[in-house]
């Protein structure tokens, strides 16, 4: 039992760091950075569940992020649904879309799955671009409402009036996502997902209905992407199709790989580094992007397991067996 509670230490650490962050680095700029980092923690952790743990090379994550964003915003602006109901519906829509796409693609493997999900993702973007009467096409939608407060009367009440409160909301969801993926990865169910990644044929002949498991992981992961979209869109106050195209998926994948695939904490390290690094490099944007490219290549060659794997290796020299920074799922 003592062992178990130590294992939860990084989660407590993340909670403390996230709560203290606005005090240590005050100001709108840093709050914005914190919100974006939290957003990418949600997106990469959930992709890690699909791609890292279950091993499904599906590149449509940004589309589900977009379904969450467009779904909830359109419900509010077109049908006048109260925001928090629309928010929940956006997540649900992302889940339904994932069920449909997953059911028709998850029998594919490797590059076939990658390109087929990519095709779905591009079709979604084309739909947003061309269904102008609904989505206003490539011009996107400007969001003019502030999400109303929510809470249970008499118990608690949460207002989203300020950037600071938005930060706490996004951070809470990031924490919940990391916690969920960690919990799932260590459950019986998570073991099976890992088994499917390692040898699907063996899992199948051992009596596991692998397609259902893959579909479950895919849907759960995609619903978190939907949650990210539905929550982040009003803060961004503007959504457009190209925010959710395949380049966004690729960006999320990149964060996951740099942070460390299959590690519970990799997405956290990756999001912090890749969101803040371009801001920190105080050089012209062109040079910055070139440096960025070089960093990607170097990290992938020198640290194939990403930052999490690297930190684990350094730490295990100091304290053998330590996996605080990585915690392979």
């Amino acid at each position: 039992m003592a062992r178990r509670s130590w294992q939860a230490l990084p989660l407590v650490g993340l909670l403390a760091a996230g709560m203290l962050y606005p005090r240590l680095l005050p100001g709108d700029y840093f709050l914005h950075l914190g919100i974006v980092v939290s957003l990418y923690i949600i997106l990469t952790s959930s992709l890690n569940l699909i791609m890292g743990i279950t091993g499904q090379f599906a590149i449509a994550h940004a589309a589900f992020y977009g379904v969450g964003a467009y779904g909830s915003i359109l419900l509010v602006t077109r049908l006048g649904v109260p925001y928090w109901w629309a928010w929940a519906a956006g997540i649900l829509l992302a889940g339904i879309a994932a069920l449909i796409i997953g059911a028709s693609t998850l029998h594919l493997k490797g590059a076939y799955l990658a390109i087929c999900t990519f095709a779905f993702s591009e079709l979604f973007r084309l739909l947003l671009d061309n269904w102008i009467s609904l989505t206003n096409g490539a011009n996107g939608i400007i969001i003019r409402f502030v999400p109303p407060p929510f809470g249970i009367p008499g118990l608690f009440r949460f207002e989203l009036g300020s950037r600071r409160s938005y930060y706490y909301l996004m951070f809470t969801f990031a924490l919940v996502t990391v916690w969920f993926v960690r919990r799932l990865a260590r459950s019986d169910l998570g073991r099976v997902l890992g088994a499917i990644r390692q040898d699907e044929t063996l899992a199948l002949t051992a009596g596991f209905d692998t397609r259902r498991y893959k579909l479950l992981a895919f849907t759960a992961g995609s619903m978190f992407a939907g949650l990210a979209g539905a929550t982040y869109a009003p803060y961004l106050s503007y959504i457009a199709p190209d925010l959710f195209d395949v380049n966004e998926t690729i960006y999320i994948m990149m964060i996951m790989m740099i942070g460390g695939i299959r590690s519970i904490w990799g997405p956290v390290w990756g999001s912090i580094l890749l969101v803040s690094l371009p801001q920190a490099l105080d050089i012209t944007p062109l040079l910055r992007m070139i440096a960025y490219g070089l960093v990607l290549i170097l990290v992938m060659i020198r640290m194939p397991d990403g930052l999490a794997g690297f930190l684990d290796r350094v730490m295990s020299r100091l304290r053998p067996g330590s996996t605080w920074f990585g915690q392979k799922a």
């Binding site: 459950s187 073991r191 009596g207 259902r212």
Partner: peptide, 23 residues
Amino acid sequence: LMRQPRLMGSNLQTMLASLPRVA
């Protein structure tokens, strides 16, 4: 892993029942 009951395949409830169990 092999010892795990094969819950999946019947319904969502039994599927989710294997979630909280830490193996």
